[in-house]
Amino acid sequence: MKKPMIKVQHRKIAANEADNSRRQFLKIGSIAVVGSGLLLSCSSDDDFTGPVDPDPNAVFDLGSGDVGILNYAYALEQLEAAFYTQVLDGSYWASASAQERLILEDLYKHEVIHRDFFKAAITGAVNGDTSKVLPELEFDFSSVDFGNRSSVLGTARVLEDTGVAAYNGAGSLLETPDYLVIAGKIVSVEARHAAAIRSIFFDDPKAFAGDDVVNANGLDVAQSPSDILTAVGQTGFVKTEFTANQLPTG
């Protein structure tokens, strides 16, 4: 069943472009997006047969339905895994306290495992059609000083809190109960990470679940894929373009 794709506004993600022209930014759609109010197109298709461009050089689209959400999570896990891989190659980690070394090494392992899990899970979900699996992304962490504790832990803090907000916001977009449970299995580990990083990075002993991330109802942050992708785009970390034109929006 084919449905017309909803046309959306595309604007350019280029928050920091003036500051660092070397950076390339995650672009949403063939036209990239700037500022707030990014609108992603939405597909109400329940199947996973979104249009696939046969051109191998085409910009990858995350896809629709559950596969789209899984690819979205895979992109975030690739980002985290790539970041911690560089952390462990950096001079800050090499000279950090034993406790901080251990925490960061564990986070590295967990995020690489999450990344590899998604690759396997999505490949299975699309019956081995690798054209529907997000390719290996390239990243640019040149704005992070891997020799500097604040730069490393501050970036880790952002990535972990972002991961929590992303999974919390994506759960209701999933249609398959088993995927929801798996997302739940991962998000709580991301939240454990976020709390640990906050705990060692901030002086405030309440920062592990600080008032900046937990509201008066005791609820953590939940953000939509479009908000998350906009924020990720603004970091400038993602070099490889991909689009998110068919993700469900709930």
Binding site: V164, Y167, N168, G169, G171, S172, L174, P177, L180, V181, G184, K185, V187, S188, V189, E190, A191, R192, H193, A194, A195, A196, S199, F208, A209, V214, N217, G218, L219, D220, V221, A222
Partner: peptide, 30 residues
Amino acid sequence: YKGQAGNLMGTQFLTPALQIHSVEARHASE
């Protein structure tokens, strides 16, 4: 909370439950 997520699918309570779930995980870690 994780065990109940499936029972909340399709309801307005799923996202708030997930938001509580991750707070519990922050607590657990700390």
